[in-house]
Every structure is written in C-alpha cells, then in structure tokens.
Design a protein around this nucleic acid. Structure first.
Lengths: 334, 334
DNA sequence: TTGTAGGCGTTATCAT
DNA sequence: ATGATAACGCCTACAA
C-alpha cells in the first residue's frame, strides 16, 4: 500500500509536506505540489480511508438497515438512497434485518461502532410489534437516524413517511364513487405495521363516509394466504372490489379472483400496492399504488446529509412523500 | 465515545491492562479482569472498529458490487451473501454500479482503500462489453475477488456461474420433445453478456439437434422492446413457443401474446428466466427457470471467506451452480 | 501481574 | 515554504 511516508521518502520531503501538497494547501509551493501529485498519480496513491477516519472521526459512510431487499419497494428506496449519497460523495453500508429485532440490533451495534456517520432505517416487523426502541435511543444520542416508511413514533429522529392514510382513502373513494363498488374487501399482511394501520384507517374513513360495510381480511403470518383469500371470496360472492395494502396479497387476489370465474376489472376491481414496475406485471392490469420508493430514498438521504453537515443540532423533521395514484392506467399525481 | 483510555483512567490502571483484560489475556489477574469487564459493560464500551482496523489491517467487511438491486435476481444473491457473511461475523458494504463501468471503478476505488477485505461482484454491462478489466487486476493483486453470474474470463479470480448453457438447452429440448413445439423464438435483452451468450448457445444446440430453424430476437438497448416483440409475433404467426433468457422480456412476451389473441400455454408456450417468486406472478403461469440466487450468493460468500481465511494463497476456483428448472409447475431439480 | 513505548496512516498545530 | 511533533484508539512486544 502506497503511503504518504513512502512518497515523502522518495521525494526527500517530509510527510506533512506531502499531505499538504495533496490537499492543495496554500502553504506549499507550486513546484513541490506538482512533483508530489505527479508521483502520487504514478504510484496510484490512495489515502487510507481508515486512517483518515480515525483522524477526523468522520467516515463518510451511511448505514442503511432494511428488513429485506427482496421486497421491491425497499430495493427501490435503497437505490434512491444510493444515488443521492453517491452525488455527495458518501458511501453506504447496507444491512438486512430480515424483519428480526435481534438482527436489527446487531446491525446497529456493528455499524455504530465507528463505521458510519448516520443511519437510514426501515424498522423491522418484530421491532415494531415489540416496541423495542432502546437500540435506536442509544445510537441516536450520538448519531443521526432517519427512519422511513416503517416508523417508530416514540423515537426522536427525522422521518420520511408516505401519506398512507390519504392514499388508501382516495383509492377507496375512487372505487366507490367512480366505479360504483359497494362491497369492498380490504386485504393485508401488514396489519400490525404502522403503515398498515394508517392504510386501514384510510379505507375505514372512505367506507364510513359512504355508509358501506367495512370488511377487512387480515393475513399476517398465515401459511396459505391465497387459500384464505379464495375461501373468503367463495363465501362472499357479492364482493366487487379488493384493496390490497401490501405488495403481495394484491397479486394473490388477482389469481384467486380468476379461480372463482370472475373477471378483473369487470366483475371485481383490484387495487394493489407498489408491485414492481407495473409494466412488468402480467395482465389483466392490476391497478397499482406506487409508493415512489426512489423519491423516498432520495428524501431520506438528503435529510440525513443535512443533519450530518450542520454543526448545530438540527431539529428533527418529518417529511411526507405523496404517493402516486395510478388507477386503471391513468396516472394521477395528487 | 467510551475508549480504553477512559476506562483505564477510571480504574487507575494502564490502557494496556484494560486492553488485555478485555481480550481475556492470561497475563491479567482475575480480579482486575472482573473490575474491567464490569465497568466496560456498565459504560457500554465497544471497541472502535476503525482503530482496530488500522492496527490489524483487517476490516471484516466484504464489498459487494452489483449492477442493480432492482433486479430481483441480484437482490436474491445479495440476500444469500448477507446471510452467509452474517454467520461468519462479517459485514458487507453494497455498492451499485448501475451497469456503468465508471461507477464500478469508483466503487472499487473507494472500497479497496482499506475498507474491505474482499470483493464479491457481478460485472456491469458496460464493463463486460468494453472488456475493461484494469480495476479488477489492480485490486486483485492484493484483495481477493469473487465474481458471480456476470463473469470476466480474462480476470484471474474465483467465480460462481450458473450452468446457463445446459439450462436453456434442457428447456428448449423440453419444449421440442414434450410439447411438440416446432417454431421456437428466443428473445433476449442480454445478448452481449457472458450469460446471455451461453444461454443462446444452449438454445442453438437443442434447435440444431432437432433440425429446426433458429430464430433469435435481440432487444438490447431497444426503447420499446414490447412493441418489437408484438411486431415480430404478428409477422410470424406460426411461432408456438417463446424462450426468454432474461428476467423481463418473458413477462413482456406474455402480455404481447395476449394481444394477438393467442392462449398461453395452449397456443404458445412461454418460458422465462427467474422472475421473482413465481407464486407472485399473475397467471397464466409462465414457466420459470429459477437461477437460485440465494444459493449463488451463499456459494460466492463461502468461496471468498475461504480465500480470506487461508494464509497461503488459494488457487482460484470456478463453481457451477445448477439451475432449477421449473416447467409448467412441476419443479425438476436436475 | 502490570505498565511503557511505539506504531498503524493521516491530519493539524506549531516551529523553523 | 517546509518540517517536526503530537494525536486519533487500539494492539503488542518488551520492560519493570
């Protein structure tokens, strides 16, 4: 590994001269600067980040902890984060909590020990159901944290959330008013998550306003969610609309609707949440609520960078990213 | 940040005593050890990884560089890597090359400077078409690299590949022999990648053996691949099978087949590559070739860990992971 | 059994 | 304009 010391020896100058020359300090003569930079390039010198970090106690790395990368929403958010950090010369370390509290804690332990300057996190399912917030509080004392999507209200930190309530409220209202649906079923496998609760509330409000009957099918932790959906559909043949509030059950519903010989969207409307690029979803086109993962990642990263780069303690912000409602092909930005 | 120094001061012993006590050195008396560990726990002392790294020049971090996380195959591989590293107490830093040579180089630059002990990489598209390998060679001199899926033959390092040739050969043969297909179209948007070439060869061999006519539709860099597919289908109405060798065009083909009023799989068989969990793909069920991303990630990580933990220079290995062929619902492990 | 000293590569301060 | 020195936090001979 080429070090400042080596360069110094080869050039017969001191280490500090080399260091200053490379950082283009005004104290160093043009001549020396040229000699130094030339040799540095030639030998392909790269400053040792670890030593730099030790010295400055800044790592220029952001820790990202997400429940899973197999969920396309999170993959998209991470992509948004990455792009933003890249533009500001930061790196990221991604850790996967796998929805487990313990792995989330370990990730924070690991990363918080000098490895990263700040965190961006979507809270694991288990963490959210257990209300375990100690690891966030400990770390948060010294290191900025930004939470997105899966958010813990009791933790004092910046947050980026989706307007879950409003989005599902609007979508439900649309089905009722524009498509004249009367028997709307909501299905979900994220009932116990903060986002899930908000979304269900949005549904409930629209239903109530229209004086209809609420009907919610919760599929958390079920082994065979599709079976349950099918059963439910068979028992309730009057259902004319299905609203899925996660990224999976909507697709399942689509398949099950076909099994009972009904047509989408003629007999039953189906709305799903954020399943990959709708271009790649097989027809019949499911209506999709796009959570704009990229935007959320971007926003989270910017928020964190702000906190990192302002010396004065910034006040924590909560930013709401508006969802993009895409119903029946028409994309309407609210 | 709690440091050894602080602990030492509070306990009125020297820094080295504390250090040794915490690493359970035999040189330190039981009494002192207890006092030290108790205080350390109380103050929640965590060794500063950065300082450790500076000293040992080991980071216990693996750099993972992938073209994208929005491709579910890569997401799955990363998941496999993560799980394996986790079990061996390693961390990972994921960087996204975005299929760009320049970003890939930058990622390697960044990470290779003291941040990681080794690399796992799937080569960016641009890198593979340009045959740019200098950044791999430079890094490879001092740091082990494992390539997976997208592989560069000219780079001397360990590799994990899929049996692309064999898989597509078998799939094509299946369509010909079991489903009596005569006009098999292969579509691809990864024609210029190593994996794409292998897959096309597998197709070609099966076609040749059956004395059929080869028909390949290349969609690299096309703006409207689905349009092209549709056009091609309209012009060649005798096509009775479509083999997509990437994770996107298969779905597109499905949609386009419907537009020309044919039925899958009655009129036309469709086989795609590795599109997420097939459970979640809308019917009609597309036959899917599962690349077993998790296994590939696992294998890559193990290979790298082997190299990292053996002092003697290990010889580079190339491991082939067999694909799982899943045709018409029946999953057949070859 | 414990402590001292030196060094990993860098940067910042102070002296020349 | 350049150089010497100390310090970041940790580890480890070696000395006491």
């Amino acid at each position: 590994m080429v070090t400042l010391k080596e360069l110094a020896k080869l050039l017969n100058v001191s280490v500090s001269t080399v260091s200053k020359a490379l950082s283009d300090s005004s104290e160093i003569g043009e001549n020396t600067k040229r000699r130094v930079t030339e040799l540095a390039n030639e030998l392909n010198y790269k400053p040792n980040r670890i030593a730099q970090q030790l010295k400055t106690s800044k790592t220029k790395v952001v820790g990202v902890v997400v429940p899973s990368l197999m969920n396309p929403f999170f993959a998209e958010v991470v992509h948004g984060i990455e792009t933003t950090l890249e533009n500001h010369n930061y790196d990221m370390m991604v850790c996967i909590s796998n929805e487990s509290l313990e792995k989330e804690q370990r990730s924070f332990d690991l990363l918080s020990t000098g490895s990263v300057d700040g965190f961006i996190v979507a809270v694991a399912r288990e963490t959210q159901t257990n209300h375990s917030i100690k690891h966030f509080e400990n770390v948060g004392r010294t290191t900025p944290i930004v939470m997105f999507d899966r958010v813990l209200n009791d933790v004092a930190c910046s947050k980026v959330v989706v307007d879950d309530f409003e989005t599902v409220y609007q979508a439900t209202k649309y089905l009722i008013e524009e498509e004249n649906r009367k028997h709307l079923l909501l299905i979900s496998n994220i009932e116990e998550l903060s986002v899930g609760k908000q979304r269900i509330k949005g549904y409930a409000k629209a239903i109530e306003e229209a004086n209809l009957k609420s009907s919610v099918l919760k599929l958390d932790d079920e082994i065979n969610p599709d079976e349950l959906i099918l059963e439910h559909l068979k028992k309730n043949l009057n259902i004319d609309a299905i609203i899925s509030i996660d990224h999976i059950t909507g697709i399942m519903a689509l398949n099950m609707v076909k099994k009972i010989d009904k047509k989408v969207p003629d007999d039953i409307s189906v709305i799903g949440f954020d399943y990959v690029d709708s271009k790649f979803v097989s027809s019949p086109k499911i209506s999709v609520v796009n959570q704009k993962g990229f935007k959320i990642g971007e926003t989270s990263a910017k928020l964190l960078l702000d906190e990192l780069n302002s010396k004065s303690r910034v006040k924590h912000k909560t930013i709401m990213v508006k969802s993009l409602l895409s119903l029946n092909g028409t994309t309407q930005n609210k």
